[in-house]
Simulated assay, not measured.
Amino acid sequence: MNDVLTMYSYPPCGTCRKAKKWLDEHHISYQIINIAEQPPSRAVLAQIIKKSGAPIGKFLNTSGKHYREGDYKNKRKNASEEQLLEWLEADGMLIKRPLVFDEQKATVGFSEHLFEKEWLEKVKNA
């Protein structure tokens, strides 16, 4: 498996910087897309969510300013998955980051354990 990872990231985000540092330290190739300037389309989001195996609610940046100011905590209670995808597509800052994915799988957020489990094989198979 030698396809390059894609990482939706936000440059000032500390968690994104940690993920970037981890990938760099493990010599894993990736391309970065600024999530604020180019949020993923609804179709791309749906693919990432499916590949991750995580529920769509995990993709909401619940600690973010846009989430709080938009009162999404209350709005999402009765929102359909389609509505959630619409909101995420419209505002990349509502998306938990980083989003990292390749052709087979995807992760949302960063923890060293998660990246070791999901992305370390990129090193082994490179």
Rank of each mutant, 00 (worst) to 15 (best):
N2M: 13
D3T: 15
M7N: 07
Y8V: 08
Y10E: 05
Y10N: 07
P11A: 06
G14W: 06
T15Y: 02
A19S: 13
A19G: 12
E25Y: 01
Y30S: 05
I33G: 01
E37I: 11
Q38F: 09
R42N: 10
R42F: 06
A43T: 12
V44E: 02
Q47L: 05
I48A: 08
K51Y: 03
S52D: 03
G53E: 10
A54C: 12
G57M: 11
K58H: 12
L60E: 10
N61H: 09
N61R: 12
K65L: 14
R68G: 07
E69H: 02
G70S: 13
G70Y: 04
D71Y: 09
K75E: 12
K77T: 15
K77R: 15
L84P: 10
W87D: 09
E89S: 11
K96H: 06
K96M: 01
P98A: 06
L99H: 00
V100L: 08
F101T: 03
F101E: 00
E103V: 13
Q104M: 12
A106K: 00
T107H: 00
V108I: 15
S111D: 04
S111Q: 01
E112S: 14
E112Y: 10
L114E: 15
F115W: 10
F115R: 09
W119M: 07
K122C: 11
V123F: 03
N125H: 11
N125D: 09
